[in-house]
């Protein structure tokens, strides 16, 4: 079959909403785009463990500690599903992780911001996971089968994460003045970076058009961002917090909230590695990996020894 025929079959499947599976023929660029996107997503889960992990030992009650541990553990699990999905495209987990450590692969910039108070754990759940869910709900219908299926599992857990974040903030917002201030401060610091999670404007987004055509992406950055603002602006009322944007206002003609412009200079700066925690996050991941080297090696050597002994016994 010629490449043209293969391409036609591929595009027909996309057209008819039939999932592309690992063994199907796919354009090289489709594969590359997916590897980039899924591995970036996997890294985001794993790096995302760090800012929240920062408060595990200091969680204010045993119940909160247990919930936070379970949540961060879920993220490790999401990382695993996603690394597996990347492997179906022919890249090993080790290779993917090396790309993170060398700085070649990116992860969500949001995790380059520090968690300074307990309220940040609430804000991350509410805003960061809230933004992530919108993206992930869309990805449940993405055209690549293993990615879509991983997303379905992930989405179930993410909605629990967002609720627990909201609940942390709700408790603070009903607490003492100090707690209310802590809550507002965290929202002030996390609001804009959360909006940045949806990426550049559609007009500036380099990968968007082709991804939309291949139905990897099914909503644009700006559409998702608008959806997020509309959702959060309503929930903020329940929390009695203000979102730090003087231009945020309901627009009855558009039937959406209007909102101000993102500080794109900050956005690109953090993407390029100049965020407050870029270096620490990557260093922490590298350190864990390097310090785990002897452990992984010992496990491999022991498994071989064991196998050799078993073969000997059989013989």
């Amino acid at each position: 079959m010629s490449i043209k025929d293969l391409e036609k079959i591929f595009l027909d499947k996309i057209e008819k909403e039939i999932k592309i599976e690992p063994k199907d023929w796919m354009p090289e660029q489709y594969r590359k785009t997916l590897i980039r996107q899924i591995s970036q997503h996997a890294h985001s889960e794993v790096v995302g463990m760090l800012p929240e992990g920062n408060w595990i030992t200091r969680a204010p009650t045993l119940k909160r500690k247990a919930i936070l541990l379970a949540k961060v553990q879920d993220e490790a699990g999401h990382g695993l599903y996603l690394y597996s999905a990347t492997e179906t495209l022919g890249v090993s987990r080790e290779q993917t992780i090396n790309d993170l450590h060398s700085g070649k692969a990116k992860y969500s910039s949001i995790f380059n911001y520090p968690t300074l108070t307990w309220a940040d754990i609430g804000a991350i759940g509410w805003l960061v996971d809230g933004a992530a869910i919108l993206n992930q709900v869309m990805l449940c219908r993405t055209s690549y089968g293993p990615y879509a299926r991983a997303m379905v599992r992930i989405c179930k857990e993410e909605s629990f994460h967002q609720r627990q974040g909201f609940e942390i903030l709700l408790t603070l917002s009903r607490g003492t003045d100090v707690q209310k201030a802590m809550c507002q401060d965290a929202v002030n610091r996390w609001w804009w970076p959360s909006l940045m999670m949806f990426g550049p404007h559609d007009s500036e987004s380099t990968h968007s058009e082709q991804s939309t055509q291949w139905k990897i992406k099914r909503m644009s950055n700006d559409e998702l961002r608008q959806k997020f603002v509309d959702m959060i602006a309503e929930q903020a009322k329940i929390l009695n917090v203000t979102l730090p944007d003087p231009e945020l206002k309901w627009n009855p003609e558009r039937n959406h909230y209007d909102f101000g412009e993102i500080n794109w200079e900050e956005f690109w700066n953090v993407v390029k590695g100049n965020g407050p925690c870029n270096k620490q996050r990557l260093d922490a991941r590298r350190k864990a990996w390097q310090e785990g080297e002897w452990v992984r090696q010992a496990a491999a050597v022991h498994a071989e020894k064991r196998k050799a002994r078993e073969t000997q016994q059989v013989a």
Partner: peptide, 25 residues
């Protein structure tokens, strides 16, 4: 729980966190 996010490999990060969760429970 200090290991959470810093384990030698993802599967073991999950395992030690699980044990931590059991103990806190």
């Amino acid at each position: 729980s200090e290991w959470c996010g810093h384990g030698p490999v993802l599967e073991q990060d999950i395992a030690i966190t699980n044990i931590s969760l059991d103990l806190i429970g």
